[in-house]
């Protein structure tokens, strides 16, 4: 294993933090609901998973509960902005704050506590023996592998099944969707709830594997970056994989660059500046015309 392989390996590990949240948000936004609460939901997932892994020692249970808690947050968001037609931006910001607050209270006794179990790397038989790629792709932990399956699956559902057509119809033109017998509210609820659950998994991945300890604001803006990655991947789960791994690379590269004696605080701005640069690029008019946001994104239905 050389430095570059290590860099790629770590980039994928770092990108997976972003990937679940991004995939979940793609699902929600395809149905027409913008969830700005990702940052908070990730924190909530992070602390629930961390706390549970310490009290129970079960990694699987921790992940499942983090997913459930994320779903719950998504449920609150959809109740407010689907049923009650609340402003999605405001509701999302509120959710981000509320979840951040709750997770800091939840985590008050876990600051500085060492992890009890962490997700360890599992070598995939045969595949992990492939030179170079085997190490990069198939000597990771189980959540990384799960993402390999979830992303294409989500793509298949969105673009090859009737359910996916219905979801996209809800996000583009809910009134017309309703005229084809689609229960717009039900679909928006389901997608938002699941999207929240995915953000919960992102959080769990963070504290169970990537940075296995708890501090306040552990997510450090990754939730917001995921929102940008949804735009960068133009609402496609497959492009999201590339976008997230690339951003994983941006994050890892700062540690690598630190070895070149560059200032760590200034290097710390790389992911954020890269985010701004990335969404500026996709916002260029020509690209935006090819693949735009879901037309009804952020709008309540029915409108008054």
């Amino acid at each position: 294993m050389n430095d570059l392989e290590l860099l790629a390996h770590e980039s994928i590990a770092a990108g997976t933090v972003l990937l679940y949240a991004t995939l979940g948000e793609i699902l929600a936004e395809r149905s027409g609901v913008l969830n700005l609460g990702l940052e908070g939901i990730m924190m909530l997932g992070a602390i629930t998973a961390f706390a549970l892994s310490i009290t129970t020692g079960s990694v699987v249970l921790s992940i499942l509960v983090a997913f459930a808690v994320g779903c719950l947050a998504g449920l609150l968001h959809s109740a407010v902005c689907v049923s009650m037609r609340g402003n999605q931006v405001v509701s999302g910001l509120a959710l981000a704050m509320l979840c951040a607050g709750i997770s800091s209270v939840l985590g008050r006794n876990y600051v500085g506590v060492p992890p009890r179990t962490i997700l360890s790397a599992v070598k995939v038989p045969i595949l992990s023996e492939i030179p170079c790629l085997g190490y990069i792709l198939f000597q990771q932990n189980i959540l990384v592998y799960l993402a390999y399956i979830v992303a294409p699956l989500l793509w298949f559902i969105l673009f090859k099944t009737k359910i996916g057509v219905a979801i996209r119809a809800c996000g583009d033109d809910p009134l017309s969707a309703e005229s084809m017998g689609i229960n717009v509210h039900l679909y928006r609820y389901l997608c938002t709830v699941l999207g929240g659950g995915f953000a919960g998994i992102s959080g769990a991945y963070l504290t169970l594997s990537y940075t296995p300890f708890w501090v306040e604001n552990i997510t450090a803006g990754r939730g917001w970056i995921s929102l940008a990655l949804v735009i960068l991947s133009t609402w496609s789960p497959l492009r999201a994989v590339l976008a997230c791994y690339f951003f994983g690379f941006c994050e890892i590269s700062q540690y690598w660059l630190q070895t070149l004696k560059l200032n760590p605080y200034l290097l710390g701005t790389i992911p954020y500046l890269a985010t701004i640069a990335a969404i500026s690029v996709v916002s260029v008019e020509k690209i935006r015309k090819l693949v735009g946001a879901p037309r009804a994104l952020g709008k309540p239905y029915p409108e008054d």
């Binding site: 908070g40 405001v90 509120a94 959710l95 509320l98 800091s104 209270v105 985590g107």
Partner: peptide
């Protein structure tokens, strides 16, 4: 002995309740 993030609970809830 609460963490500083506790203010966020108030802030978030106020906005949610406002929408409701």
């Amino acid at each position: 002995k609460l963490p500083r993030g506790v203010i966020n609970i108030f802030n978030g809830l106020i906005l949610v309740m406002l929408l409701v």
